[in-house]
Amino acid sequence: MPALPSTPRLPASVSLGDGGYAFAHDPALPVGPEPVAWLPELSPGTLLLDEAPRGFEHVSLDPSQLGTIIADRADDEGREVIVVDDSGELHIRLRSENAAQRPMILLPADLASFDLRLAVASRFMRRLGGQTIGLLPQALRLTMQRKRRLVELLHAFDVHDLGGGPRDVADLILHSAQARLPSVEWKDSHARRAANRLIHDSIALVNRGYLKLLRGG
Rank of each mutant, 00 (worst) to 15 (best):
L198M: 13
Y210V: 09
M1P: 00
L135I: 07
D110I: 09
P35H: 11
A179T: 09
S122Q: 13
V184P: 00
Q178T: 11
G216I: 07
R197A: 15
M125W: 01
A71N: 07
L136H: 01
N196Q: 15
L128E: 07
M104H: 10
A177M: 09
G163C: 11
D50E: 04
P30M: 13
E152D: 14
A52I: 12
R180M: 13
H200R: 15
R180V: 09
I69F: 07
L48I: 13
L135K: 04
R117T: 09
P40W: 01
V84E: 06
L66A: 06
P8D: 08
P5I: 02
S113Q: 14
R95W: 02
H175I: 08
L111C: 01
E57K: 13
G164W: 11
A156T: 10
G163Y: 12
L150N: 04
E41A: 14
V120M: 08
Y21Q: 13
R54E: 14
G164L: 08
F157G: 07
V159N: 01
A119N: 02
A156P: 03
R192C: 13
L211G: 07
L106W: 00
V184N: 06
L47P: 03
G20K: 12
V206E: 09
G20D: 10
R102E: 00
D85Q: 07
E97Q: 11
L135A: 13
T46S: 02
M125V: 14
G17D: 14
P53T: 11
S202M: 10
A12T: 13
V120D: 00
G164E: 10
L181K: 09
D76M: 14
N98W: 02
G88S: 13
E34R: 12
N196R: 14
S6C: 00
M104G: 05
S64E: 02
L142E: 09
V159P: 03
A52C: 12
S43Y: 06
I199V: 15
L111A: 15
V81A: 00
G78W: 06
R79M: 11
R73Y: 10
R127M: 05
R167G: 08
A12W: 10
R193H: 09
S64A: 11
D76F: 11
A177Q: 05
E152W: 00
A139L: 05
F124A: 02
D62V: 04
D86G: 10
T68G: 01
D161T: 08
L174Y: 07
H58G: 06
E152H: 09
V206K: 08
H91W: 12
L214P: 02
L90V: 10
V84P: 00
E77R: 05
M144I: 04
P63E: 02
V159W: 00
L140I: 00
G209A: 07
G20S: 12
A3V: 12
G130N: 08
L107D: 02
D75Q: 11
L174N: 12
T7N: 07
A204I: 13
L205W: 06
P166D: 14
L211R: 14
R192Y: 08
E41G: 04
L66V: 08
I92C: 06
S96C: 06
A74V: 06
L174F: 09
L111E: 15
L10K: 15
L106A: 03
L118S: 14
G129E: 04
P40M: 04
D86R: 14
R193C: 09
V169T: 11
A24K: 04
A22D: 05
